[in-house]
Write a protein that binds this DNA or RNA. Sequence first.
RNA 1: GGGGAGAUACCAAAGUGGCCAACUGGGGCGGACUGUAAAUCCGCUGUCUCUGACUUCACAGGUUCGAAUCCUGUUCUCCCCA
Length: 424
Amino acid sequence: MKTNFLHELTWRGMVHNHTPEVEKLLQQPTTAYVGFDPTADSLHIGNLVSLMLLVYLQRAGHTPIALIGGATGMIGDPSGKSKERNLLDEDTIRYNLERIKLQMQKFLDFETTENPAEIVNNYDWYKNFNVIDFLRNVGKHLTISYMIAKDSVQNRLETGISFTEFSYQLLQGYDFYWLYTHKNCRLQMGGSDQWGNITAGIELISKLIPQAQAHAITCPLLTKSDGSKFGKSEQGNIWLDANKTSPYKFYQFWLNVDDKDLPKLLRIFLPFDQATIKQLETDNAQNPNALKRILAKEITTMVHSVEDYQKAEQASQLLYGKAVLEQFEATDLATLQEVFEGLPRQTYTAKEFESIATTTDLVALALQISKSEANRLIKGNGVSINKTKLTIEQATQKPNFTLLKEQFLLIQKGKQYFLVEVLK
RNA sequence: GGGGAGAUACCAAAGUGGCCAACUGGGGCGGACUGUAAAUCCGCUGUCUCUGACUUCACAGGUUCGAAUCCUGUUCUCCCCA
């Protein structure tokens, strides 16, 4: 099944801007790339949009290249950044890059013979590129006035931009040129903030290769309906790495998205066709939570695994469903362990547990907060233990609760869960 | 180089000798209502041995019964002139 890539991106709401002739280019199987910054050892939800661009590209019969900016990551892209950033050292970048590669392998098909995906690292072609050559062969072709006109640079002229970050567009431009000549890559995609960098590449290619046809597609930056950044909630980024964001938390994140963002998210992240998505929306028009569950299920399965999804779902059912204490008791220990897996946990020996003087102390310890804060929360009716609100009176006394399965206490702070485990 | 203004809690911003753990707004957290949503309303938002005590208003000293507020020095930031 080959789809019309540009058409598909359009109905998915993933086209912000593109070069005029790109549609013609895409009538033939084409190679395209998206760049990723190895600034962390995991991709996050923001990167997931770019990754989906490549997924849809490959499904449409084109060849995707994921470029990991081992070199450019050492420079720092000024786009969307209000101030100069710290440079990462080489070892960190190398490590991050390997981790990111592993994550990408879940999404793209590297085995197919027809249009296998590929991951490249621009450090490979920069490491032996000397300054003189770079300035003669690349820098010569773009003018300062052209470079200064870019929004990413304009926005920084007041607050300051180093020559290093200013040069970034040349590097990214050359990346495109390199891929164009070595991998026959004709198209670069990215977030709308990348437009300036991409066109710099197109400009460079057209200077170096007179008949060249290089193109760009950018996609809107993912934001919440209130305009704030998506996937960067309170506790920071939502990562794809299970060690940084547990599958349970990941799953919960999608269940908790704003209703208003649903149509947008379904279209970007669900790999179904247009009719199916519309059908889902009609079927669940009165029940946005069902839609969120589908969204959460699909993305969690895609990023983690079916098993992880099932555990997350099970945990959510138990923790947020109508579940009462009896249901926890009725669940077998192994399952319960899995349900509790993603929760912050404090473990004590029976002796240690005995020595905790008051329930307030216990709460402070379990939630890793100060005693004053624990006190405030309890006074504000904000803490439950084993699904029952903690009274102020109880809080001042020595903990006296029935342990679930004779070893767990489930403590709730609002909607968040914490676990205390007492070893026998 | 010369002149001026400022540094207050997560951020912004009041306070200019006792009524200040410090107005207010944002953010965050909790509660109510709901659908684990949004909107709305309410409460909390330094620490502790918690109806009280203790440590905070750039840093170090000083004046005073008493300082975020006055004085001295230090560091940093911003603005204007050259």
